[in-house]
Design a protein around this nucleic acid. Structure first.
Lengths: 238, 238
DNA sequence: CGCGGTATTGACACTATTCAACATCAGTGG
DNA sequence: CCACTGATGTTGAATAGTGTCAATACCGCG
């Protein structure tokens, strides 16, 4: 009767049993996808909001010159594509990075939920504002930080978000990213990402495996990146 | 009884006379600042939301190495600093670029408005989502586009947003930005901005004046930048 | 009138990109 | 089970694009 999305909302807004139940009902239709598979393919439009329940996905857009910009990593409880409700269509797609489960809410249902339960509406707004904060941080990261720190920063953020707020933080954290994914998120070339990762490996902060990057020393990485998670509230585990 | 903020909200949500009036009442306490002056200074925190009513301002943050990243331009009707309502504090400041008028709503009042008028709440969410779309575009711009196009793109966006949706688009548009401002928004160095602007001037797309940049050929600039305003709904003039 | 921020220009340094070649691995179909 | 294939990872060399530094010019403001 509770899932990652409900927990996420509860991390920003107190909910009644009834609200929890209504949310759980609306999100109980779960779908699965394998790694590297589309969740919202390029070209698909206006199909309602998506909610990631488990696994890691990303939101991206293909630019005019063919390059891909990843703008968000989406973990358990993350919601996206709400902007279609507003009539905006910015042409983003969603793809799974690791095996994912997700659910889907069409706009009328979501609007009805918000209408009936104002706290849910407020909660959604809160989540959007938090997301905006993360996006600003990405902008500063991509714009102003040199490659090594930029990559370290992004990986720090991702580790931070993937860990539950109430659990003790493990020092190791596996990120299901290829070097190409990292390149598209940090706006660097894959070749340079490879060199940067080499340097982080020399510092014993990460180790590399095919198709995934393992952060060996979370604390060390965060302090190297000068990362602080102040701007990201996290959900408690359920 | 109507101001830029009310019109902005009405561009995304139909409002009753009563709602309009309530909004106008809440935002009638207008303050003025001269160009280059702080609206929300560095260090000030948690003082409620700000709404720009006229003029142009920007939102920025000073990074660890002292560089400044501008993350938003704020024009008439734009709202910011809502995230304090959610408890997030990301350390951003706001400064006027041109002479500005603005107003201020403390969080309890804003929360009360949303509570009483659900449509206002929905409208605020919509505005936040639109803003997020703009931010994503900035990310792609800073991350992937070469300097000349990056600068052209940003100026295109700004021209586009500063023009009312219903007015015929003038071909010329003055932007109250120094080259340093442009540098901090595009994540380029001031020196390079100067060179880029030189190139755009050669193309007769812009002309330069001290402390302001004049776009001479809006259409030409947008097409050079491959800019499309799809992702930005605009407010009608009041 | 002088001061301080802004704009302009040139020389140079450096970071990251591109290109190319090759290695490695997972999955596929024979 | 193996060979093939395509995506990913690795490395080096050459290059392009921006940044940095420095010197100078400009202009609004006190």
């Amino acid at each position: 009767m509770s899932n990652a999305f409900v927990r996420r909302l509860e991390s920003v807004e107190r909910l009644t049993k009834i609200e929890r139940q209504a949310l759980a009902d609306a999100t109980k239709n779960v779908q699965k996808v394998g790694p590297r598979r589309p969740i919202l393919g390029e070209g698909q439009r206006n199909v309602g909001a998506h909610i990631i329940l488990s696994g890691l996905a990303c939101r991206y857009r293909i630019l005019e010159d063919g390059s891909r910009q990843i703008t968000d990593f989406l973990g358990p409880g993350d919601l996206c594509e709400c902007e279609h409700m507003v009539g905006a269509d910015s042409g983003y797609s969603i793809a799974a990075l690791s095996p994912c489960t997700y659910t889907h809410i069409d706009h009328p249902s979501l609007a009805a939920l918000m209408e009936k339960y104002p706290r849910i509406g407020r909660g959604l707004w809160s989540l959007t504002l938090i997301n905006e904060g993360v996006l600003r941080e990405w902008l500063a990261n991509v714009g102003r930080r040199p490659a090594v720190r930029r990559v370290a920063y992004l990986m720090s953020e991702l580790c931070f978000r993937l860990q539950n707020a109430d659990a003790p933080r493990p020092s190791s954290c596996a990120l299901p990213l290829t070097q190409i994914d990292l390149a598209d998120a940090t706006a660097l070339s894959p070749v340079h990402i490879n060199r940067v990762l080499g340097r982080l490996r020399e510092k014993r902060l990460v180790s590399l495996q095919r198709r995934s990057i393992i952060v060996k020393d979370t604390e060390g990485l965060m302090s190297f990146a000068e990362f602080s998670g102040n701007y990201i509230p996290r959900s408690p585990a359920g």
